[in-house]
């Protein structure tokens, strides 16, 4: 394997324009898992673009209408950030549920997005906050809504020559913010069901993790919430959830469990919040 270590963002973008494009690496908490074993013939010939030294990309910036996380911002950075704590407390909730301190100190939010795990912990809250992803390449910069970023299992809008440079989160007033991670244990766990819900003047956002090939907004559930239709039990959510998600049986849980727990979380967490839920 080879590693390219650019000293500037421009240089990084220039290197990404190569064919084949090198694979960006930063906190390495996903790529290095079982590294020697996973270092198969393909990885051995692969070229990595190490952006970890581009310290300009590690920042949390609060402006009037937006909070920006640089591409190298770690979970631990967010946990320590007063700005995040004030405006986006679910970012802290989610960050604290990522692995352990040892992972939180290394793993980046941007890495969580491009690793594209359906069970990611950081993505649901970002999506529920209407975050956008800033992608940069040699040919320019573009911004994509995170809820439109994924198109299937590990399928995303990022082209191989693009680098995520920042995550932008619009600052709004939320009257509801709910984050749930259901893992097999209370720390150091991979999500079996993830849920983030927000409500603002922009409406409802209901984001589910580990129940579909990708993390997604549950638009039918959102519509149900907007409609104010009565919900008297988790079963009343089943139809909408069924339209939104497609959980599977795997080594960590079952389709049945995921589907039911998602409904139960939404129901119980909104009961007492929404008059429609009783």
């Amino acid at each position: 394997m080879k590693v390219l270590s650019p000293r500037s963002l421009d240089e990084a973008c220039a290197l990404l324009a190569r064919d084949p494009a090198p694979r960006p690496i930063a906190g390495a908490t996903d790529i290095l898992v079982h590294w020697p074993d996973n270092l198969n013939a393909k990885a051995e010939t692969e070229t990595y673009l190490d952006i970890s030294a581009l310290s300009d990309l590690r920042h949390i910036t609060r402006e009037d209408d937006v909070l920006t996380l640089g591409a190298l911002t770690t979970y631990w950075d967010v946990i320590q950030s007063q700005a995040c704590r004030d405006d986006f407390p679910m970012l802290l909730d989610a960050a604290r549920q990522v692995g352990s301190v040892q992972i939180q100190s290394r793993g980046t939010w941007a890495g969580n997005i491009v690793n594209a795990s359906p069970a990611a912990d950081g993505v649901p809250v970002l999506m529920a906050y209407d975050a956008t992803v800033v992608l940069r390449s040699k040919s320019g910069e573009m911004e994509v809504r995170l809820d439109e970023f994924y198109s299937g299992y590990k399928q995303m809008q990022r082209r191989p020559d693009q680098l995520i440079t920042a995550i932008r989160i619009p600052r709004r007033t939320y009257d509801t913010q709910i984050f749930e991670k259901v893992g097999p244990r209370r720390a150091q766990a991979i999500s079996k069901v993830g849920l983030a819900i927000t409500h603002s003047t922009e409406g409802w956002r209901v984001v589910a993790a580990a129940v579909a090939p990708m993390i997604l907004r549950c638009k039918s559930v959102e519509a149900l919430l907007e409609s104010g239709a009565p919900v008297r039990s988790p079963d009343d959510l089943a139809q909408a959830i069924d339209q939104d998600v497609a959980p599977i049986d795997d080594i960590r849980s079952t389709r049945e469990y995921r589907q039911r727990v998602l409904a139960r979380l939404i129901y119980h967490d909104l009961k007492g919040v929404l008059p429609a839920f009783s």
Partner: peptide
């Protein structure tokens, strides 16, 4: 404003 607190203090 409603947030679901997990079991630890935020």
């Amino acid at each position: 404003m409603r947030r679901i607190e997990r079991d630890y203090p935020i």
